[in-house]
Design a binder for these strands. Structure first.
Lengths: 264, 264
DNA sequence: CTTGGTAGG
DNA sequence: CCTATCAAG
């Protein structure tokens, strides 16, 4: 059994003060993919930087306080790689890969974008480049008998069931037709949306609720945090849960951990 | 009887959330001079912007979130003037005057400075220009049978008794020889340091304690908030108190109100 | 250590 | 609404 969690922590330092440390102590996960750590390793306290029983690998952004991904694992990875071979994005704290026995796990933080801004252009450039990388990654892995699991915050809701208010969001970044069809292409290229595969019925489960307004209390969420796995691994998924906090006050991020257990 | 308080609120919005509103409701002051309001009037809630029973006059800085002075009074001022005729400083939220019957009250926020920086040069320019203004103000007022009271954060400790650790601060902004002698010149020009006059024995009473370290708990403070009054008014001062909060947690600013009662 | 602005989400 | 950086104090 292998349990993998992915969670956008929205600032690891802030999360640590609000309950992340307790969650880390109690989780049954073997591997945790984090996004938006928003910190240099040196800025973290020891209990977050080097928690007992964990191997930690962090890929901060070259822009201080922005983005940043990490992979924490109980077993030591055989290898770790930062970035996906992109001159534009490799130092932006958006992609980190770790190899374990027969399995490559990645932590992804796809740019969030906003229609009509430079950041949407950036998101599109990332999607194009990263989509090509994903295809190659799957091919190499498959030919080596290795499975691939790309976890993270993709900042795209794929289908209507993946966000509470899809009609109002058809022209908003995160649910644009071109973003959705890009994600369809990724899936058609040999990846499985593990949570949706185990829970074919929507709506949800959502993994992100805006801090604005009453989004959390109204469960006005989006499912933008995914496990995308090669089919051999996806077939071994036995359970998937979104660890939504019971109350607003108990949250330590605007995202909830998405946790999947895979049979060995 | 006329009671006048002066207090650097260190952000009126922050202070309002921490106890300023309660203090305003309980104070016996007739006039309050404030410094570092750090807000546009429109950014304030109604209970702070227009508290019942008060006439409020604010002089924000043209630089958002910086400086800003105000005068709140139970009686409506006969006239209010922003600035002291300085092209450099009049829109910087550092000086506001209000006329009452036979009395001009001013709220001053003198630049704070730091040795070896541009901001110390700015402080020195302000001191020079403002010192000349003060002399003229006193002359005009006296010739009209009017008293003057300049309250505020002068960002200078005058004498050794005016700060806890004067020896260590002889080369620091706020206790430099040139700043101290400038203040002596102001006093020799016809103003009285009212609190020191009522409390000739130091050390203290301090009116500011840094948020850094344990300054408040150790009473490692500075007396930099003053009532400078023309002699006729200073002679009528009957009591002076610094309203130091009982505990760190009860503070709503790093400064405490300096409150003086004047006989009629 | 604290405030408020600002960028980013 | 929340997390950061930054300038200022």
């Amino acid at each position: 059994m292998l349990t993998v969690s992915t969670v956008n922590v929205n600032g690891l330092r802030a999360a640590a003060k609000k309950g992340f440390v307790e969650w880390l102590g109690e989780t049954g996960a073997d591997i945790i993919c984090m996004q938006e750590t928003r910190a240099e390793p040196e800025q973290l306290t020891a209990e977050v930087r080097e928690p007992e029983g964990w191997h930690t690998n962090l890929a901060p952004s070259s822009a201080k306080g922005r983005s940043g991904v990490a992979i924490y694992s109980r077993a030591e990875p055989q290898a770790v790689r930062v970035g996906f071979g992109s001159s534009e994005f490799d130092d932006s704290g958006r992609y980190l890969e770790a190899d374990f026995a027969g399995l490559t796990v990645a932590s992804l933080y796809l740019p969030s974008g906003e229609v009509g801004t430079d950041r949407q252009d950036e998101k599109e450039r990332f999607m194009k480049e990263f989509g090509e990388y994903l295809a190659g990654l799957r091919e190499r892995a498959t030919s080596q008998g290795r499975e691939v699991l790309v976890c993270g915050d993709w900042n795209i809701a794929h289908q209507e069931a993946d966000l509470k208010n899809w009609k109002a969001n058809r022209k908003n970044a995160g649910f644009l037709p071109e973003e959705r069809s890009w994600m369809t292409d990724v899936l058609n290229g040999g990846y499985v949306d593990v949570v949706r595969s185990l829970h074919p019925e929507g709506p949800g489960p959502y993994s992100w609720w805006s801090y604005r307004g009453k989004a959390f209390d109204n469960d006005s969420g989006w499912r933008i945090d995914y496990h995308f796995a090669t089919p051999g691994l996806a077939d071994r998924a036995t359970s998937a849960v979104v660890e939504r906090a019971p109350t607003y006050a108990e949250r330590w991020s605007d995202h909830a951990p998405v946790t999947v257990t895979y049979a060995r």
